[in-house]
Every structure is written in structure tokens, then in C-alpha cells.
Computed example of a mutant assay.
Amino acid sequence: MALFNRTKREINAKIVYFGPPLAGKATTLQFIHRKLKPECRGPVKTMGGQSDRMLFFDFMPPELGEVNDYRVRFHLYTVQGEVTNRSTWKTVLKGADGIVFVADASPESAAVTRESMENLRECLRSYGQDLEKLPCVIQCNKSDLPDALATEEMAQQVDSAGLPVIRSASRTGEGILQVLSTVVKGVMNALRDQESVGSVTADSSVVLKGVGSEDEHAPVERGEEMAAGPPDLTERVDTPPSAAGPTLAMGGAVTVTADGILQVPLTVGCGGTERGFVLTIKLTPDASVVA
């Protein structure tokens, strides 16, 4: 569920890249991060130990326009490699506004890809959500392999139910930006349709310049246009800096690690200056309280 930061006049939307182990989720996010202009993206961050390691970053492409006078900041999340604790994925998926299912197109991974899709649907059902009611794209990764399954066959394997299915190769970048553009467009349209938000003030059909309408086999260098736009991303404020008092606001999505660490991103402002902090809380049971 998108979070509103009224101090910075931003909407924070969460997109989760879900899929089987070694399907290319982390490689996909790292490729996207490299293609974004530095002034449009935050740093790549990791959280967790040797296993169940979360990877995430945020970005705000200026060409997306605004939703009811709010800029939209996207937070991309995934979990690298083999996930040993199933609750890790449930935590990452909580509050997701959009999902990219990274399917492994290699024939030997067909069974584990089907199982991963079933796990995704089950995790969402535990939150009362339905995959078909969320902006979701099926990314058929490793489609550059000689024996890769066709997108039509992959759609049947995971029971895509009419969701967009796009071939990709995270090693070369083929299709990666097209997938991102498609899910971002879906999230923007969902925000527009929310009665409490209103309508998008810019044309959401032009989601990322040079991406989304291009042929999926075009050279990946064309994706450099994705973050094109004004280099000055100065944040909008409602009052002059001299009149601004102390402010405290949520700076992004709250996360909970597998070992019970609660991390709350905060934005603290004073005198026209803002800084980001992360409030870290360790949850421990209270032996004096009997349920």
C-alpha cells in the first residue's frame, strides 16, 4: 500500500521482484540501478545475513509527472538467492503496490518456477490480496538461452491469467526496462484510480521515456533514455525554509528482518534542512505479559 509523505509531498510506492532462486532477480535490479541517472536514484542497500539477503533501492524519474500534486518515489525490493525462511518473502511482499514475477525460462527450472508462483499467490492471500488485482508483470528471464521456453509456454507454466508476459535476459539487459516500464505504468494507473488520491496530472501512458513502446529486441543502450529529464530534482516545500519548523515524517516502507529487527525510515526536517534516518527496533518478548 502506497505511503504518503506530506512533508516532502511524495508518494512512496513499493514494487517487489519475486521469483525462484537464481532466476536473475538481483541481477535485474542491479542492471536497472546502473541505467538510472545518479540524480534520480538512491544507493543500492542490502539487509540480512548470509542467507535471506534483501536487496533494495529507490528512484524517482522526473518524467512521470505527479499524482494530485505529489511526486511518486518507487522502492524496488527483492531477496537474493535461496530463501531459507519463508517469512522473509511474506515480510517483503507486505504492502506491495506492484509485483514483477521473475520466471526462469530454462526447461530444467520449470517445476521450481511453478512452485514459486504458487508461493507468491499464497503469500498474497495471507494478506487478503489477489495477484490478478495488483499491477503485475511476468518477466521470462534467461530467454536468451538456446533451449529457453517460449513466452507462451511460460505463461501456461505459471498460469499467468492474462498478466503481461515479457521475455528478458538479465545478463544482457534485454526486456528488463520494458518490464519495469510496464509495472510502473500499472502502479501509476492504480494510484490514479484511487478515489482518495484523484487523477494523475501528467499523461501516465508515457511512463519512462524511450522504454515501454520500444521493440523488446532493441539494443539495450536505448534504455539510457529511461531517466532522461531535468537534472534538478529539488524537493517541493509548502513553506519558506526560514518559516519551517521541526518535522518528522515516514521516509519509505517499514521492513522487518527475519531475526525480528524492525526498521523504520524517517525524514527529520528543521530550519529548511532535511536528513534521513533509520529507526531500528529489536522486538523481544515480554515474559511478564501472559497472553
Rank of each mutant, 00 (worst) to 15 (best):
A2V: 15
A110R: 09
C270N: 13
L177D: 01
H33C: 05
P20G: 04
T84E: 12
V268S: 11
A2M: 14
S126P: 01
P62Q: 01
E118C: 09
I15Q: 09
L124K: 11
E10V: 10
D203G: 14
F56C: 00
P164E: 00
T91G: 14
D147S: 10
V211C: 12
V254S: 00
Q139N: 03
T78F: 05
R121M: 11
R73P: 08
P285Y: 02
G245P: 13
V158A: 00
G95L: 09
S168A: 15
N141Q: 04
Q156T: 11
G198F: 07
D238T: 14
A105G: 09
D286C: 13
E153L: 09
H217I: 09
A13K: 10
R171S: 11
D144H: 10
G272H: 04
C40Y: 14
T7G: 12
A148R: 10
K142C: 10
G271S: 07
K209W: 03
D286L: 13
V72D: 03
K94T: 15
T247W: 08
G229W: 00
V79E: 04
D232I: 08
L124Y: 03
G276C: 09
T284D: 10
D159C: 06
L64G: 07
L279T: 01
L149W: 05
G19M: 03
V183P: 05
